[in-house]
Amino acid sequence: MAHDASTHEHQSATKRIWVVFAILSIITIVEVILGIIKPASLVETTLISMSLLNWIFIILTIVKAYYITWAFMHMEHETKGLRRSVVWTVIFLIAYLVFILLTEGDYIYEVYKNGHVAWDF
């Protein structure tokens, strides 16, 4: 009985790997197709100072990252403590850093554009 249970578990683990591979492949194909045709409606719609297309790319990337971490790196089987200490730390620090740097980059762009100092000779 115990043996049956473990082979069944094994089959579901392998199946999960292939399902995740299929999901990752489909997302990548969608990204590539969108990247090649660049639908005008998505490029021209802006949401929070970035085009809708770019938001779609970033969200799809985070979905891919979720599947790689949870399924391939077995984060789903780790304890809640380990999971939170890794994921929350990374997400908080990255969100903070990205917010600060992008805001500053945008500010410098404005200075270059509207400031009174010539920088292009």
């Binding site: 730390t89 990374v90 620090l93 850093l97 980059g105 410098i108 762009y109």
Partner: peptide, 22 residues
Amino acid sequence: TSDALTFSAFLAAYGFSRFKFI
């Protein structure tokens, strides 16, 4: 975790330069 922060610092710096020359 620490390596992920290194990479995200690089990518965030890339984003900074990109927003500067948007």
